[in-house]
Design a protein around this nucleic acid. Structure first.
Length: 426
RNA sequence: GGAGAGGUGGCUGAGUGGUCGAAAGCGCUCCCCUGCUAAGGGAGUAUACGUUAAUAGCGUAUCGAGGGUUCGAAUCCCUCUCUCUCCGCCA
């Protein structure tokens, strides 16, 4: 959520910045609501003030033993007036809040304008796309030939966009998780965390998935439960600090979590329907940082670097892009995507997305820290990034490390987690 | 699932209808005293919004959330939610 102060004081520049994200703020509607709110608030507060002072007088008169009936008569009509005014003000406030909750975060000055991923700016390429002296296959063919990956069986169990796996591919999948988490906790200073996979509405409000993106989520709506499956560990883990004040000395908080992620993928029908690129359920190792506001942009560079390290250690060629305004997420002020080279698609595909949310989520969550300089509780900044998406990393390993005979070589750094296996063969 | 207790400011914790935004303690900030790795004294210390040149004053709201009763509610009633204790069931 944006600071409503800057909306009131500097609406024009807010509108201009939102344009970069292709978001058109209904300025007229906002101004009108705001204007109405102001006048109504003043008149309501006047009424409340009158009620308060008269009630006080009644209390004092009663204490002295005076007759209070005349005083009671004078307040008789106040109640109804107040009730009406308060109800109207509430309604207006609710509409303003709804408007505010739907406004995305402002993009950072370094974010380029643009409408789609075609307008993203490439920052660097690392590694050489693998060369093959045979026609490389995609992970679907490879998985089928190896015999451990079955989409039809998953469809029987659950429908489209699920997979079942058996045997060494699953071991590799698990090895990736272990490898990533160990790297982050031992080398990058993150604290390993465990969090719920089902969360309530307030939690999703906090990180910005609700109220605007409800259709992207799986929802448990039964008699006794109103919960959502997490679309990313960002949601529960960032909310660790919701409604709390963190001591300055504890910052930055750096959390790593491995969780499944659940996404309805509404609106992406027909997109990446084949294979494991886009599933309703996938595993991800997520990095979350809670930092001082003055440290957040540097933290974004650091966090992105941590995700890159994983790709580098796995020897996977990738490129790093800055998302343009139109591609930038709702809550993010700046996002780096890491795109891994997939020989089977002959393309770079997103494998990590690292974002700085400034105080946008913190304001929604009421996540604060005590600033020693001011002595006040102020909003923290939050960041998150995939380090990495496990399913897509599995694909990348399969396609990049494939052999002419359809086998998959195991990267050196993963072998300690593969009980000696150096290659997966049919 | 059954029975009970409870959610108050950064923290602990008083407060059962009227000068309660809220005692006290802790913590923190400033000042004084003392001059030595102690201690003592004093003052201040929630947030949001409105008004305003103002982080000054004043006003309004906020004691888990929402609704109700009342001239007036942290205090009474209802619903929801969370926590704790005991019993039952259970990976």
């Amino acid at each position: 959520m944006l600071d409503s102060k800057i909306l009131r004081s500097d609406l024009d520049s807010v509108v201009a910045k939102l344009q970069i994200k292709n978001f058109d703020l209904d300025v007229a509607a906002f101004r009108q609501l705001e204007e109405q709110r102001k006048t109504l608030q003043i008149s309501t507060q006047n009424l409340q003030g009158e009620r308060n002072s008269r009630s006080k007088a009644i209390g004092e008169a009663k204490a002295k033993g005076d007759d209070i009936q005349p005083l009671l008569d004078t307040v008789a009509s106040l109640g109804d007036q107040l009730k009406t005014a308060e109800a109207e003000l509430n309604g207006l406030q609710t509409r303003l809040d709804e408007l505010l909750l739907d406004i995305p975060n402002l993009p950072h000055d370094s974010v380029p304008a643009g409408n789609s991923e075609a307008d993203n700016i490439e920052v660097l390429r690392w590694g050489e796309p693998a060369e093959f002296d045979f026609e490389p296959r995609d992970h679907i063919d490879l998985g089928q030939a190896l015999g451990g990956m079955d989409f039809e069986r998953a469809a029987k169990l659950s429908g489209a966009r699920f997979v079942t796996m058996t045997g060494p591919l699953v071991t590799l999948h698990r090895a990736l998780i272990q490898f990533m988490i160990n790297q982050h906790i031992l080398q990058h200073g993150y604290t390993e965390t465990y969090a719920p996979y089902l969360v309530n509405e307030a939690t999703l409000m906090g990180t910005g998935q609700l109220p605007k993106f409800k259709e992207d989520l799986f929802h448990i709506d039964s008699e006794n439960h109103n919960l959502y499956l997490i679309p990313t560990a960002e949601v529960p883990v960032t909310n660790f600090v919701a409604d709390s004040i963190v001591e300055a000395g504890q910052l930055p908080l750096k959390y790593v979590a491995h969780t499944p992620c659940f996404r309805s993928e509404a609106g992406s029908y027909g997109k990446d329907t084949r294979g494991m690129i886009r599933q309703h359920q996938f595993e991800k190792v997520e990095l979350v940082q809670i930092v001082r506001p003055d440290a957040s942009m540097a933290a974004l560079e650091e966090l992105t670097g941590h995700a890159e390290t994983i790709l580098q250690l796995l020897g996977l060629a990738y490129r790093k892009v800055i998302l343009c305004g139109g591609d930038l997420g709702f809550a993010s002020t700046k996002t780096y995507d890491l795109e891994v080279w997939l020989p089977g698609q002959n393309a770079y595909r997103e494998i990590s997305s690292c974002s700085c949310m400034t105080d946008f989520q913190a304001r929604r969550m009421k996540a604060r820290w005590r600033n020693p300089e001011t002595g006040k509780a102020e909003l923290v900044h939050t960041l998150n990034g995939s380090g990495l998406a496990v399913g897509r990393t599995l694909i990348a390993i399969m396609e990049n490390y494939q052999q002419a005979d359809g086998g998959i070589k195991i990267p050196d750094v993963l072998q300690p987690y593969m009980h000696g296996m150096t290659e997966i063969r049919a």
